[in-house]
Amino acid sequence: MAKIKGAVVVNKERCKGCELCVVACPSQVLALQPTEVNDRGYHYAFMQNPDACIGCASCGLVCPDGCITVYKVKL
């Protein structure tokens, strides 16, 4: 069976740190930056556990601000 690997890119300046992508991810890939903030003061989302991403795009779908771009490859 083909394995699937995904990766996401978060537009960090557009992110408002709402956390909806974090809870929507089935693989616990995402987290909010614990200390870093963007120019508008938000703790932006990032891939804390990139190896677990399956490219399902759940995070992208739920993000109200369209901050997340999702990529996926079949190995």
């Binding site: 690997k5 995904g6 990766a7 890119v9 537009n11 557009r14 408002k16 740190g17 709402c18 956390e19 909806l20 508008r40 938000y42 490219g55 795009a57 992208g60 779908l61 109200p64 601000d65 369209g66 901050c67 997340i68 771009t69 999702v70 990529y71 996926k72 490859v73």
Partner: peptide, 26 residues
């Protein structure tokens, strides 16, 4: 190796522009 145009599965809609939206987070 994954983040390449040919592997794109989701991105912000083309008709949504880059203006930051004034809505509250979430």
């Amino acid at each position: 190796e994954i983040i390449k145009p040919e592997n794109l599965v989701y991105t912000k809609p083309r008709l949504m522009n880059d203006n930051p939206m004034h809505y509250c987070p979430g």
